[in-house]
Design a binder for these strands. Structure first.
Lengths: 191, 191
DNA sequence: GTCTATACACGGATAGAC
DNA sequence: GTCTATCCGTGTATAGAC
Protein backbone atom coordinates (compact mmCIF):
# COMPACT_ATOMS: atom_id res chain seq x y z
CA UNK A 1 0.00 0.00 0.00
CA UNK A 2 2.90 2.31 -0.87
CA UNK A 3 2.10 5.97 -1.50
CA UNK A 4 4.22 7.26 -4.36
CA UNK A 5 6.17 10.44 -4.79
CA UNK A 6 6.34 11.44 -1.16
CA UNK A 7 9.07 11.55 1.42
CA UNK A 8 8.97 8.97 4.16
CA UNK A 9 7.56 11.32 6.81
CA UNK A 10 4.89 12.40 4.34
CA UNK A 11 3.95 8.81 3.60
CA UNK A 12 3.76 8.08 7.29
CA UNK A 13 1.49 11.03 7.96
CA UNK A 14 -0.78 10.27 5.03
CA UNK A 15 -0.98 6.61 5.99
CA UNK A 16 -1.83 7.55 9.54
CA UNK A 17 -4.56 9.86 8.32
CA UNK A 18 -6.16 7.07 6.34
CA UNK A 19 -5.92 4.53 9.11
CA UNK A 20 -7.24 6.92 11.73
CA UNK A 21 -10.19 7.62 9.49
CA UNK A 22 -10.86 3.95 8.91
CA UNK A 23 -10.07 2.40 12.27
CA UNK A 24 -9.68 5.23 14.79
CA UNK A 25 -6.76 5.86 17.08
CA UNK A 26 -7.23 2.86 19.33
CA UNK A 27 -7.60 0.56 16.34
CA UNK A 28 -4.49 1.78 14.53
CA UNK A 29 -1.12 0.24 15.36
CA UNK A 30 2.33 1.57 14.51
CA UNK A 31 2.97 -1.62 12.59
CA UNK A 32 -0.11 -1.11 10.43
CA UNK A 33 1.01 2.45 9.69
CA UNK A 34 4.49 1.31 8.71
CA UNK A 35 3.14 -1.33 6.37
CA UNK A 36 0.65 1.06 4.79
CA UNK A 37 3.43 3.61 4.29
CA UNK A 38 6.02 1.11 3.11
CA UNK A 39 8.35 2.28 5.88
CA UNK A 40 10.32 0.31 8.42
CA UNK A 41 10.05 0.35 12.18
CA UNK A 42 13.27 2.27 12.66
CA UNK A 43 12.26 4.76 10.01
CA UNK A 44 9.05 5.65 11.73
CA UNK A 45 10.70 6.10 15.12
CA UNK A 46 13.41 8.20 13.54
CA UNK A 47 10.94 10.76 12.21
CA UNK A 48 8.38 10.64 15.00
CA UNK A 49 8.68 10.01 18.71
CA UNK A 50 5.85 7.47 18.70
CA UNK A 51 2.25 6.82 17.87
CA UNK A 52 0.82 9.91 19.60
CA UNK A 53 3.29 12.21 17.86
CA UNK A 54 2.45 10.81 14.46
CA UNK A 55 -1.25 10.87 15.19
CA UNK A 56 -1.01 14.51 16.19
CA UNK A 57 0.57 15.43 12.86
CA UNK A 58 -2.09 13.44 11.03
CA UNK A 59 -5.01 14.87 12.99
CA UNK A 60 -3.77 18.45 12.54
CA UNK A 61 -3.54 18.01 8.83
CA UNK A 62 -6.95 16.39 8.57
CA UNK A 63 -8.47 19.17 10.64
CA UNK A 64 -6.91 21.85 8.44
CA UNK A 65 -8.17 20.12 5.34
CA UNK A 66 -11.70 19.86 6.69
CA UNK A 67 -11.68 23.55 7.49
CA UNK A 68 -10.52 24.47 4.02
CA UNK A 69 -13.13 22.22 2.41
CA UNK A 70 -15.91 23.67 4.52
CA UNK A 71 -14.79 27.23 3.87
CA UNK A 72 -14.90 26.56 0.14
CA UNK A 73 -18.65 25.88 0.40
CA UNK A 74 -19.38 28.57 2.93
CA UNK A 75 -17.52 31.42 1.27
CA UNK A 76 -19.36 31.01 -2.01
CA UNK A 77 -21.78 33.51 -3.47
CA UNK A 78 -25.50 33.44 -2.86
CA UNK A 79 -27.87 33.93 0.02
CA UNK A 80 -27.23 32.62 3.51
CA UNK A 81 -29.55 29.73 2.77
CA UNK A 82 -27.65 28.98 -0.42
CA UNK A 83 -24.34 28.86 1.37
CA UNK A 84 -25.62 26.63 4.15
CA UNK A 85 -27.22 24.40 1.54
CA UNK A 86 -23.98 24.32 -0.40
CA UNK A 87 -22.20 23.14 2.74
CA UNK A 88 -24.82 20.52 3.51
CA UNK A 89 -25.03 19.21 -0.03
CA UNK A 90 -21.36 19.12 -0.91
CA UNK A 91 -20.04 15.74 -2.00
CA UNK A 92 -18.98 13.50 0.83
CA UNK A 93 -17.71 10.01 1.25
CA UNK A 94 -20.62 9.51 3.62
CA UNK A 95 -20.00 5.88 4.51
CA UNK A 96 -16.48 6.63 5.68
CA UNK A 97 -17.81 9.07 8.23
CA UNK A 98 -16.23 12.37 9.22
CA UNK A 99 -12.48 12.00 9.75
CA UNK A 100 -12.58 14.66 12.46
CA UNK A 101 -15.90 13.88 14.12
CA UNK A 102 -15.17 10.16 14.48
CA UNK A 103 -12.22 11.00 16.71
CA UNK A 104 -14.61 12.22 19.40
CA UNK A 105 -15.56 8.58 19.97
CA UNK A 106 -11.95 7.58 20.48
CA UNK A 107 -11.29 7.41 24.21
CA UNK A 108 -7.55 7.95 23.91
CA UNK A 109 -8.03 11.02 21.73
CA UNK A 110 -10.54 12.54 24.12
CA UNK A 111 -8.25 11.77 27.04
CA UNK A 112 -5.34 13.67 25.49
CA UNK A 113 -5.48 17.47 25.50
CA UNK A 114 -3.08 17.62 22.59
CA UNK A 115 -4.89 15.17 20.36
CA UNK A 116 -8.31 16.56 21.23
CA UNK A 117 -7.41 20.19 20.58
CA UNK A 118 -7.52 20.16 16.77
CA UNK A 119 -10.84 18.30 16.88
CA UNK A 120 -12.38 20.80 19.28
CA UNK A 121 -11.04 23.79 17.41
CA UNK A 122 -12.20 22.62 14.02
CA UNK A 123 -15.75 21.83 15.06
CA UNK A 124 -15.97 25.04 17.06
CA UNK A 125 -14.69 27.03 14.14
CA UNK A 126 -17.31 25.41 11.91
CA UNK A 127 -20.07 26.18 14.35
CA UNK A 128 -18.96 29.79 14.59
CA UNK A 129 -18.60 30.18 10.85
CA UNK A 130 -22.07 28.81 10.22
CA UNK A 131 -23.46 31.05 12.95
CA UNK A 132 -22.09 34.12 11.15
CA UNK A 133 -23.82 33.10 7.97
CA UNK A 134 -27.11 32.30 9.67
CA UNK A 135 -26.94 35.66 11.44
CA UNK A 136 -26.50 37.35 8.07
CA UNK A 137 -29.61 35.53 6.92
CA UNK A 138 -31.51 36.74 9.96
CA UNK A 139 -30.28 40.29 9.45
CA UNK A 140 -31.33 40.26 5.80
CA UNK A 141 -34.76 39.02 6.77
CA UNK A 142 -34.10 35.76 4.97
CA UNK A 143 -34.57 33.72 8.16
CA UNK A 144 -37.06 34.39 10.92
CA UNK A 145 -35.79 36.94 13.44
CA UNK A 146 -36.80 34.56 16.20
CA UNK A 147 -34.02 32.13 15.30
CA UNK A 148 -30.82 32.04 17.32
CA UNK A 149 -27.93 31.86 14.87
CA UNK A 150 -25.71 29.85 17.21
CA UNK A 151 -28.44 27.31 17.85
CA UNK A 152 -29.14 26.85 14.17
CA UNK A 153 -25.45 26.52 13.44
CA UNK A 154 -25.24 23.76 16.03
CA UNK A 155 -28.22 22.04 14.47
CA UNK A 156 -26.56 22.16 11.06
CA UNK A 157 -23.30 20.67 12.27
CA UNK A 158 -25.12 18.07 14.36
CA UNK A 159 -27.25 17.00 11.45
CA UNK A 160 -24.18 16.36 9.37
CA UNK A 161 -22.29 14.54 12.11
CA UNK A 162 -25.32 12.48 13.04
CA UNK A 163 -26.06 11.77 9.40
CA UNK A 164 -22.77 9.91 9.20
CA UNK A 165 -23.84 7.76 12.12
CA UNK A 166 -27.12 6.83 10.45
CA UNK A 167 -25.46 6.16 7.14
CA UNK A 168 -22.89 3.86 8.68
CA UNK A 169 -25.54 2.10 10.71
CA UNK A 170 -27.57 1.30 7.62
CA UNK A 171 -24.68 0.86 5.25
CA UNK A 172 -26.19 3.43 2.91
CA UNK A 173 -25.88 7.20 2.40
CA UNK A 174 -29.66 7.45 2.12
CA UNK A 175 -30.28 8.33 5.77
CA UNK A 176 -27.65 11.06 5.65
CA UNK A 177 -29.30 12.58 2.60
CA UNK A 178 -32.73 12.33 4.17
CA UNK A 179 -31.58 14.18 7.28
CA UNK A 180 -30.09 16.94 5.16
CA UNK A 181 -33.25 17.22 3.07
CA UNK A 182 -35.31 17.48 6.24
CA UNK A 183 -33.13 20.21 7.65
CA UNK A 184 -33.15 22.20 4.41
CA UNK A 185 -36.93 21.93 4.25
CA UNK A 186 -37.22 23.32 7.77
CA UNK A 187 -34.73 26.04 7.02
CA UNK A 188 -36.15 27.11 3.67
CA UNK A 189 -37.10 30.78 3.55
CA UNK A 190 -40.88 30.95 3.47
CA UNK A 191 -42.14 31.87 0.07
CA UNK B 1 -15.36 -2.64 40.11
CA UNK B 2 -17.57 -5.51 41.20
CA UNK B 3 -21.28 -5.29 40.37
CA UNK B 4 -23.30 -6.63 43.27
CA UNK B 5 -26.28 -8.95 43.40
CA UNK B 6 -25.91 -10.43 39.94
CA UNK B 7 -24.91 -13.78 38.58
CA UNK B 8 -21.54 -14.03 36.90
CA UNK B 9 -22.92 -13.98 33.35
CA UNK B 10 -24.99 -10.94 34.27
CA UNK B 11 -21.99 -9.13 35.67
CA UNK B 12 -20.02 -9.96 32.57
CA UNK B 13 -22.71 -8.60 30.29
CA UNK B 14 -23.20 -5.44 32.31
CA UNK B 15 -19.47 -4.85 32.49
CA UNK B 16 -19.17 -5.31 28.77
CA UNK B 17 -21.97 -2.83 28.20
CA UNK B 18 -20.19 -0.21 30.23
CA UNK B 19 -16.83 -0.77 28.63
CA UNK B 20 -18.25 -0.80 25.12
CA UNK B 21 -19.91 2.49 25.87
CA UNK B 22 -16.75 4.01 27.25
CA UNK B 23 -14.06 2.54 25.02
CA UNK B 24 -15.79 0.88 22.08
CA UNK B 25 -15.35 -2.68 20.87
CA UNK B 26 -11.81 -2.33 19.61
CA UNK B 27 -10.74 -0.65 22.84
CA UNK B 28 -12.27 -3.24 25.15
CA UNK B 29 -10.29 -6.35 26.08
CA UNK B 30 -11.56 -9.56 27.65
CA UNK B 31 -9.18 -8.95 30.53
CA UNK B 32 -10.66 -5.52 31.20
CA UNK B 33 -14.14 -7.02 31.19
CA UNK B 34 -13.15 -9.74 33.62
CA UNK B 35 -11.61 -7.26 36.02
CA UNK B 36 -14.58 -4.93 35.82
CA UNK B 37 -16.92 -7.85 36.47
CA UNK B 38 -14.81 -9.42 39.17
CA UNK B 39 -14.76 -12.68 37.22
CA UNK B 40 -11.88 -14.92 36.28
CA UNK B 41 -10.60 -15.81 32.83
CA UNK B 42 -11.98 -19.34 32.97
CA UNK B 43 -15.30 -18.09 34.18
CA UNK B 44 -15.79 -15.79 31.26
CA UNK B 45 -14.89 -18.44 28.70
CA UNK B 46 -17.17 -20.89 30.42
CA UNK B 47 -20.24 -18.67 29.93
CA UNK B 48 -19.34 -17.11 26.59
CA UNK B 49 -17.42 -18.40 23.61
CA UNK B 50 -15.30 -15.26 23.40
CA UNK B 51 -15.28 -11.51 23.06
CA UNK B 52 -17.65 -11.30 20.08
CA UNK B 53 -20.21 -13.53 21.79
CA UNK B 54 -20.17 -11.44 24.94
CA UNK B 55 -20.26 -8.21 22.97
CA UNK B 56 -23.29 -9.45 21.06
CA UNK B 57 -25.18 -10.08 24.28
CA UNK B 58 -24.17 -6.66 25.57
CA UNK B 59 -25.05 -4.81 22.39
CA UNK B 60 -28.44 -6.51 22.13
CA UNK B 61 -29.32 -5.51 25.64
CA UNK B 62 -28.16 -1.94 25.16
CA UNK B 63 -30.16 -1.69 21.96
CA UNK B 64 -33.29 -2.99 23.65
CA UNK B 65 -32.88 -0.56 26.48
CA UNK B 66 -32.44 2.38 24.13
CA UNK B 67 -35.60 1.42 22.31
CA UNK B 68 -37.57 1.22 25.52
CA UNK B 69 -36.25 4.57 26.71
CA UNK B 70 -37.09 6.25 23.44
CA UNK B 71 -40.54 4.72 23.32
CA UNK B 72 -41.24 6.07 26.81
CA UNK B 73 -40.81 9.62 25.46
CA UNK B 74 -42.49 9.03 22.15
CA UNK B 75 -45.58 7.25 23.42
CA UNK B 76 -46.49 10.05 25.82
CA UNK B 77 -49.53 12.26 25.52
CA UNK B 78 -49.53 15.56 23.70
CA UNK B 79 -49.18 16.81 20.19
CA UNK B 80 -46.69 15.42 17.70
CA UNK B 81 -44.44 18.37 18.41
CA UNK B 82 -44.68 17.69 22.14
CA UNK B 83 -43.69 14.07 21.74
CA UNK B 84 -40.74 14.85 19.49
CA UNK B 85 -39.68 17.57 21.93
CA UNK B 86 -40.03 15.15 24.80
CA UNK B 87 -37.69 12.77 22.99
CA UNK B 88 -35.19 15.49 22.18
CA UNK B 89 -35.22 16.99 25.65
CA UNK B 90 -35.15 13.86 27.73
CA UNK B 91 -32.28 13.60 30.17
CA UNK B 92 -29.11 12.19 28.72
CA UNK B 93 -25.61 11.57 29.85
CA UNK B 94 -24.55 13.65 26.88
CA UNK B 95 -20.80 13.50 27.38
CA UNK B 96 -20.81 9.72 27.34
CA UNK B 97 -22.32 9.70 23.88
CA UNK B 98 -24.92 7.30 22.56
CA UNK B 99 -24.09 3.71 23.51
CA UNK B 100 -25.64 2.48 20.27
CA UNK B 101 -24.60 5.23 17.88
CA UNK B 102 -20.95 5.14 18.94
CA UNK B 103 -20.72 1.56 17.74
CA UNK B 104 -21.11 2.74 14.15
CA UNK B 105 -17.59 4.18 14.41
CA UNK B 106 -16.20 0.84 15.52
CA UNK B 107 -14.66 -0.87 12.50
CA UNK B 108 -14.98 -4.38 13.92
CA UNK B 109 -18.66 -3.86 14.75
CA UNK B 110 -19.43 -2.54 11.29
CA UNK B 111 -17.51 -5.41 9.74
CA UNK B 112 -19.60 -8.02 11.55
CA UNK B 113 -23.14 -8.65 10.35
CA UNK B 114 -24.12 -10.04 13.72
CA UNK B 115 -22.75 -7.20 15.80
CA UNK B 116 -24.00 -4.54 13.43
CA UNK B 117 -27.56 -5.87 13.20
CA UNK B 118 -28.87 -4.61 16.56
CA UNK B 119 -27.36 -1.19 15.86
CA UNK B 120 -28.97 -0.95 12.45
CA UNK B 121 -32.31 -2.21 13.67
CA UNK B 122 -32.49 0.13 16.62
CA UNK B 123 -31.68 3.27 14.69
CA UNK B 124 -33.98 2.26 11.88
CA UNK B 125 -36.77 1.57 14.32
CA UNK B 126 -36.24 4.99 15.86
CA UNK B 127 -36.32 6.69 12.51
CA UNK B 128 -39.52 4.88 11.60
CA UNK B 129 -41.17 5.59 14.92
CA UNK B 130 -40.39 9.29 14.67
CA UNK B 131 -41.63 9.34 11.10
CA UNK B 132 -45.03 8.01 12.25
CA UNK B 133 -45.31 10.79 14.78
CA UNK B 134 -44.24 13.50 12.37
CA UNK B 135 -46.74 12.17 9.85
CA UNK B 136 -49.47 12.45 12.47
CA UNK B 137 -48.41 16.05 12.96
CA UNK B 138 -48.64 16.68 9.25
CA UNK B 139 -52.03 15.00 9.06
CA UNK B 140 -53.35 17.08 11.95
CA UNK B 141 -52.12 20.23 10.26
CA UNK B 142 -49.65 20.80 13.06
CA UNK B 143 -46.68 20.66 10.69
CA UNK B 144 -46.53 22.01 7.17
CA UNK B 145 -47.94 19.60 4.60
CA UNK B 146 -44.83 20.16 2.52
CA UNK B 147 -42.66 18.29 5.01
CA UNK B 148 -41.62 14.71 4.36
CA UNK B 149 -42.08 12.79 7.60
CA UNK B 150 -39.21 10.40 6.89
CA UNK B 151 -36.84 13.23 6.14
CA UNK B 152 -37.74 15.10 9.30
CA UNK B 153 -37.39 11.92 11.35
CA UNK B 154 -33.89 11.48 9.95
CA UNK B 155 -33.07 15.06 10.82
CA UNK B 156 -34.24 14.52 14.38
CA UNK B 157 -32.15 11.39 14.90
CA UNK B 158 -29.16 12.96 13.18
CA UNK B 159 -29.35 16.04 15.35
CA UNK B 160 -29.22 13.91 18.46
CA UNK B 161 -26.42 11.67 17.24
CA UNK B 162 -24.42 14.62 15.98
CA UNK B 163 -25.08 16.54 19.17
CA UNK B 164 -23.16 13.89 21.06
CA UNK B 165 -20.22 14.42 18.73
CA UNK B 166 -20.18 18.17 19.34
CA UNK B 167 -20.58 17.74 23.07
CA UNK B 168 -17.69 15.31 23.30
CA UNK B 169 -15.54 17.52 21.09
CA UNK B 170 -16.04 20.51 23.37
CA UNK B 171 -16.23 18.60 26.62
CA UNK B 172 -19.56 20.23 27.40
CA UNK B 173 -23.23 19.38 26.81
CA UNK B 174 -23.87 22.93 25.66
CA UNK B 175 -23.47 22.25 21.95
CA UNK B 176 -25.85 19.31 22.16
CA UNK B 177 -28.46 21.47 23.82
CA UNK B 178 -27.96 24.25 21.31
CA UNK B 179 -28.51 21.88 18.39
CA UNK B 180 -31.70 20.60 19.97
CA UNK B 181 -32.96 24.12 20.63
CA UNK B 182 -32.25 25.05 17.03
CA UNK B 183 -34.14 22.06 15.71
CA UNK B 184 -37.12 22.67 17.98
CA UNK B 185 -37.23 26.30 16.89
CA UNK B 186 -37.33 25.23 13.24
CA UNK B 187 -39.93 22.61 13.96
CA UNK B 188 -42.22 24.74 16.11
CA UNK B 189 -45.75 24.97 14.77
CA UNK B 190 -46.20 28.47 13.44
CA UNK B 191 -48.46 30.51 15.65
C1' DG C 1 -18.40 -23.13 37.48
C1' DT C 2 -14.05 -21.30 38.63
C1' DC C 3 -8.99 -21.34 38.96
C1' DT C 4 -4.25 -21.49 37.29
C1' DA C 5 -1.04 -22.49 33.65
C1' DT C 6 0.31 -22.05 29.20
C1' DA C 7 0.49 -20.32 24.39
C1' DC C 8 1.48 -17.27 20.75
C1' DA C 9 0.80 -13.15 18.15
C1' DC C 10 0.54 -8.24 18.46
C1' DG C 11 1.27 -3.41 20.46
C1' DG C 12 4.48 -0.10 21.23
C1' DA C 13 8.87 0.94 21.78
C1' DT C 14 14.40 1.01 22.47
C1' DA C 15 19.27 -0.19 20.90
C1' DG C 16 22.71 -0.47 18.00
C1' DA C 17 24.54 -1.88 13.35
C1' DC C 18 24.93 -0.18 8.77
C1' DG D 1 17.90 7.59 7.54
C1' DT D 2 16.91 2.83 7.53
C1' DC D 3 17.35 -2.01 9.10
C1' DT D 4 17.33 -5.81 12.31
C1' DA D 5 17.28 -7.44 16.96
C1' DT D 6 15.35 -7.40 21.20
C1' DC D 7 12.11 -6.30 24.98
C1' DC D 8 8.13 -6.55 27.91
C1' DG D 9 3.33 -6.23 28.43
C1' DT D 10 -1.29 -7.17 26.51
C1' DG D 11 -4.92 -9.45 23.66
C1' DT D 12 -7.30 -13.43 23.08
C1' DA D 13 -7.67 -17.49 23.74
C1' DT D 14 -7.13 -23.11 25.14
C1' DA D 15 -6.17 -26.95 28.60
C1' DG D 16 -6.70 -29.15 32.46
C1' DA D 17 -6.94 -29.23 37.65
C1' DC D 18 -10.12 -28.49 41.37
Amino acid sequence: MYIHGMSTPERLIESTRELLWERGYVGTSPKAIQQHAGAGQGSMYHHFTGKPDLALAAIRRTAEEMRATAEASLAGAGSAYDRVASYLLRERDVLRGCPVGRLTMDPDVIASDELRAPVTETLEWLRGRLAEIVQEGVDQGEFSASLDAGDIASTVVSTVQGGYVLARATGSPEAFDAGVRGLLALLAPRA
